[in-house]
């Protein structure tokens, strides 16, 4: 195709699609889960949240861990749908099941597994990720190196289970094979004008790394059972380059 000024954008987006295809990224209809993440989803390849891969959450403080848990809860709602079961593997459970219910998850369909040692948690996570009957697996780990994350990612590629690794206060943040690295921190809520009290949960969601996508930062609010993007008046959100967003494809 001859590149002219008019069809430049089309050519580039076509090339990008081809590159994604060569890298093994096919957004198959079966595994596509609409996350209602709004602008965040556009950061991912093909503009689709990569279910069936590993997501890493970094939490530097317990407040961030709590915010990440809430955010994961919102994602789990979409993944678990009607009958799905989620495994939550940690050293000791601190998640309060009734609270996760506020994010739409049925707390009795989460099975909590407590294991003493970090390596046992890793092993259990890998075993759980191989089990294709599960909707999602959440693992609370401190450290995760490249080889370990690679193992988890390989397990997931077979079973198409979505894995979340929540790393609270990690000592080292190196390279991992995860599809995305998130950092979710609490943001000041905004109650309706004139109303006292605390408003709806609001987070500063940062995508530190995305495989084949473009990182960014957004402010999201959990309102009426879905994520709602909040326009930040002070900070300009990282504008996504238009070309990364593919047009709606048919067929």
């Amino acid at each position: 195709m001859i590149v002219t000024a008019e069809n430049k954008r089309e050519v580039i987006s076509q090339l990008q699609r081809k590159m994604l295809h060569w890298q093994g990224y096919q957004a198959t209809a079966r595994h596509t889960v609409r996350m209602s993440l709004g602008p965040v989803e556009r950061a991912f390849p093909n503009g689709v949240f990569p279910a069936g891969s590993i997501h890493e959450f970094i939490a530097a403080a317990p407040e961030q861990a709590a915010a990440s848990s809430g955010f994961i809860g919102g994602l789990l709602t979409r993944l678990m749908r009607q009958e799905g079961v989620c495994l939550w593997i940690s050293a000791s459970r601190t998640l309060f099941p009734p609270a996760i219910g506020a994010f739409g998850v049925t707390p009795d369909r989460i099975v909590f597994i407590d294991m003493k040692r970090e390596r046992d948690i890793l092993w259990a996570t890998e075993e759980a990720l191989k089990c294709s009957g599960l909707a999602a697996v959440v693992a609370e780990l401190r450290e995760l190196d490249f080889a370990q994350s690679r193992r988890l990612q390989l397990a997931v590629e077979q079973s198409r289970v979505t894995g979340f690794v929540l790393r609270s206060q990690p000592l080292r943040i190196g390279n991992t094979a995860c599809a995305a690295r998130w950092q979710v921190s609490p943001a000041p809520s905004a109650p309706e004008a004139g109303m006292p009290g605390v408003g709806l949960p609001r987070w500063r969601v940062e995508l530190l790394k995305v495989r084949n996508g473009s990182p960014g930062a957004w402010t999201l609010e959990w309102a009426a059972g879905r994520f709602a993007p909040v326009a930040d008046p002070h900070k300009q959100t990282v504008a996504l380059p238009e070309r990364l967003v593919p047009e709606q494809r048919t067929g």
Binding site: V85, V111, I113, D114, M115, D120, A124, A128
Partner: peptide, 27 residues
């Protein structure tokens, strides 16, 4: 998605508890 009655899930939990006596499975 078969929910909590899934055989694969029961087998997974067996493996997890079989590996380590400290492992607790709770719902």
């Amino acid at each position: 998605e078969q929910g909590l009655g899934d055989t694969a899930l029961a087998e997974l939990l067996d493996r997890l508890t079989g590996r380590d006596n400290c492992c607790t499975v709770s719902r």
